[in-house]
Nucleic acid binder design. Structure first.
Lengths: 235, 235
DNA sequence: TTCCTGGTTTAACAAAAATTAACATGTTTT
DNA sequence: AAAACATGTTAATTTTTGTTAAACCAGGAA
């Protein structure tokens, strides 16, 4: 699963450093810029999932950055950080199209939770969290929406759970798919019984995929599964 | 365009009154409940676009309400209001799946802006807000107001329930339509018998839609249905 | 009023899907 | 190698959905 990319613009080297480390630790890919111009340039150059802007910045303040970005991007969430108390500023920020507004000092944990709250809502709009619906692998053709798997031996109607699991495997093709990731996405809860249920579905899919001996679901003991496309040649 | 519906749960009669008036004035349709149990009951009965919960409430506090609601609804945004300062509580709230957290005293304008910031992101997930009345899909033409479905084999007069359900499916075309969403909107109440009734209507619609084999209502077991159109051209 | 009538809900049973159980097999740890 | 644990596999059980028909219910006609 791809990482979320965050653009952090903060001129205080201390805070910048801390933000960077903390967010990386929490599994985000962060880019840190020191002033507003750098920030805007970085945003235009790369694809980010969320912006974290200090309001007071050298060269170009956070609001100006947001205005510039919002000209051609109304989507990417922006969170402002500020030392100022509230009111006028806060309101100004929201009007520009901010998604949240955090006053210093704040706890890292709160920041993280606010970031997560926002990303949760935008997740499926991000291309790397693909919404691909049709997959071709080996001699199979899989249509997620129609819940239909076509293989050498004909069509098979899949159930919802079979489809969801196969889709996740396809999205990670030749890459590991983590058990708990799959469980959280499909079953919404990583628990013992759901895990066993998933194992049952893996068995079902394996049976279906036998039609093409080059395709296989291999077990990554203790961590998950991997759908591989070149089962034969690997020996 | 339909109005956004907000569920406000606040026991302080004064603040409740003010919130209600202010938000109505700003174009929202609000339901005000005085305690947690009322609130949960209201949420289960009707479809809301956003919840505004005081944390400290009689009978059932805001967090418990959120937990209960999140069991089967991960979508509807929840904002907590609280007098307490921060930290432990805030974090607890976000973990439950809150979208924002506002400490009293707050300005009405800030509250409004935070509500707007969240609704902006969820707006397009609420297709039921569309007032579209005429739909073309596959070889069908469906007029909701006239309750008329035209297909390859001619016109069919629909009943009002058939029309409402087909409209919801059309609004979510190629996307999942949640059972409980449909039930709350059409039947105003997600209960066992209404659910069975809905299943009967799904069967009726399926029979009608057989005229075009490229159109299908897929079952999303345990969650809902999906009206799909065959995008065969993509191959 | 009573009798139709069309729409909707409820009932009853069938079928499908998902979960749980039970036991087999494999993997890691000690 | 034994113990502890994770996964494979099949079958039993439970839950959800499909389908048809009968019951119900309101509104209009006789």
């Amino acid at each position: 699963m791809a990482k979320y990319k965050l653009l952090v613009v903060e001129d205080d080297p201390n805070l910048g450093q801390i933000l960077n480390e903390y967010l990386s630790l929490k599994g985000y890919e962060t880019t840190l810029c020191r002033d507003g111009e750098e920030g805007v340039a970085a945003f235009k150059r790369d694809q980010y999932n969320l912006c974290l802007f200090d309001v007071m910045l050298p060269k170009k303040d956070g609001f100006s950055m947001a205005k510039e970005i919002r000209k051609d991007d109304k989507e990417t969430p922006i969170i402002f950080l500020t030392a100022k108390s509230m009111k006028a500023d806060t309101i100004e920020g929201f009007k520009i199209g901010a998604d949240d507004y955090i006053t210093k000092p704040f706890s890292m944990e709160e920041l993280l939770l606010r970031i997560q709250a926002i990303l949760r809502r935008t997740a499926d709009k991000n291309p790397q969290f693909s919404d691909q619906k049709v997959f071709d692998f080996g001699s199979f053709h899989f249509d997620f929406d129609k819940q239909l798997l076509e293989g050498p031996e004909g069509e098979t109607k899949l159930t919802s759970k079979e489809s969801e699991l196969l889709r996740l495997l396809c999205l990670h093709i030749n890459q590991p798919l983590d058990r708990s990731v799959a469980l959280k996405i499909i079953w919404r809860d990583d628990s013992y019984f759901n895990a066993r249920s998933m194992d049952v579905y893996i068995a079902k899919l394996r049976k279906l995929l036998k039609q093409d001996e080059n395709i296989q679901i291999i077990t990554l003991h203790g961590s998950g599964f991997k759908l591989i496309t070149d089962a034969k040649s690997s020996e």
